[in-house]
Design a protein around this nucleic acid. Structure first.
Length: 282
DNA sequence: TCATCACCTGGAGA
DNA sequence: ATCTCCAGGTGAT
């Protein structure tokens, strides 16, 4: 048995990685692809409706080594001290992919709403532990959904991206098993061919579902963090939007500085800065 | 390669 | 009430 008790479920869920989770009394229930998951903090219990908890919290990572590695940076060290139980989750790739396409120019609350609508309309109803929830829709279903149905889910301009992205998966053009094995840059280029996916969204998908731990999503918050605390180290960052070219050279320097587990560093820093600004989570 | 701009929608603040 | 602005970006020009 792993030392899972060091995982802080609430902190982890409320760190912007996942959207389809709800707290009911003292435990959390969430949707991960075709599975429903129930998590309880103490005693620590993680159960899946499919009876396989797919190392959802990346239990096989050598956390001690990773944390000590990224904590060479003093601010990361502080962020880790602040949320020692924060973990990266390994999500269902298709759900993660659609989720972050929906995240474009939207808020966490709104993203959650869109995804819940998709589940209700296109998912399969499932009962687990007395809870009735719809799973996340399969690629084939979304690929064949009508634009009206997608618009009705309040996706807005993202509706066409979601449909196209689902079609890419359904046709085999995007193959998550293959992307998991591919290296960071191959995977990145492949994902960016899908309309609606740029560097930031690709990084989120790769970090949260494709085991690319050097992914370091740079969004408004991360940019703010780099500008506020790392102006000296990453001197190309300004308050202006990060262009594609800048994003890529910035990423290279970030990996040089934070190391191959830069994604972990990003997650702790992101959590710290959002909490500091009292931003709402789920 | 870079700078602008539009984009669905819902919620917060003026 | 009504308006404006913004929210974990991206694509088209």
């Amino acid at each position: 048995m792993l030392k899972t008790s060091t995982i802080d479920i609430e902190t982890t869920i409320n760190s912007g990685q996942v959207f389809l989770w709800n707290k009911i009394k003292d435990h959390w229930i969430g949707i991960d692809g075709q599975d429903l998951l129930i998590l309880n903090q103490s005693p620590f219990i993680a159960r899946s409706s499919s009876n396989k908890v797919n190392n959802f919290f990346r239990e096989e990572d050598n956390l001690k080594q990773i944390l000590s590695n990224i904590s060479r940076d003093k601010l990361v060290e502080k962020a880790v001290r602040q949320s020692p139980g924060l973990r990266l989750m390994r999500q269902d790739p298709f759900q993660c992919y659609i989720s972050f396409i929906c995240s474009s120019n939207s808020s966490i609350q709104n993203i959650k709403l869109m995804l819940e609508n998709l589940c209700k309309k296109f998912g399969n109803k499932q009962e687990f532990d007395g809870y009735k929830l719809s799973t996340f829709p399969k690629a084939e279903i979304l690929a064949n959904a009508s634009m009206k149905e997608l618009i009705d889910c309040r996706l807005g301009f993202r509706a066409k991206y979601v449909k196209g992205a689902a079609q890419a998966v359904n046709s085999g053009e995007i193959d998550f098993t293959w992307l998991k094995k591919a290296d960071y840059h191959t995977s990145l280029e492949s994902l960016k061919k899908v309309l609606g996916i740029g560097n930031k969204i690709a990084d989120c998908i790769m970090l949260f579902s494709l085991d690319k731990m050097e992914s370091f999503p740079i969004d408004r918050w991360t940019q703010r963090i780099l500008l506020k605390y790392y102006k000296k180290i990453f001197d190309t960052v300004t308050e202006k939007p990060v262009t594609e070219k800048k994003y890529e050279e910035l990423h290279e320097n970030i990996v040089k500085y934070f190391g191959p587990y830069a994604g972990y560093a990003q997650q702790f820093l992101f959590k710290m800065e959002r909490d500091l600004n009292k931003k709402k989570w789920l």
